[in-house]
Amino acid sequence: MSATGRERVPIESGYFSVPESDAEAPLLFGSRCKKCQETFFPRREVCASCLHRETTDVSIGPRGTLYTWTYLYVPLFNSQRADDGGYAVGQVDLPEGPRIQAVLRGGPDDFAIGMEMQLELETLRQDDEGRDVVVYRFRPRSEGGSE
């Protein structure tokens, strides 16, 4: 359940967790190679690095470091919000290894390379059954919000 009291469902299953409470941070679903320990996002069956055929499911995040970012002056695809003047995207390095490309919460003046980031869920819309459809994004950790 979210603060709205509605059930939350991911935009696509298999990529990230949707905790019962929105006080809890989501995690990303990755894979770790059983042989060389390289970690990947999203999940994969075969290690992209050493080609070993066995990986283990791991949950990674929710914290990372901003590697790069930009702010796009076009409406966010899929947001269905007419007031969306633009949006930020970035790449966030997780301590587990993967670099994650995602939308960032904030305006054009809110970001600096190297800043600490936090994964969170954003509600995109309601589905036919009245549930909140959510996707992950990052926000600067210094900003308020759930940890």
Binding site: W69, L72, G90, I113
Partner: peptide, 21 residues
């Protein structure tokens, strides 16, 4: 579909911002 929002314009701008840094 989860990642539809990362357009080429964004990707190459991410590259540019990193190089500027």
């Amino acid at each position: 579909a989860i990642d539809n929002v990362i357009l080429p314009t964004a990707y190459f701008s991410l590259w540019a911002m990193r190089r500027m840094h």
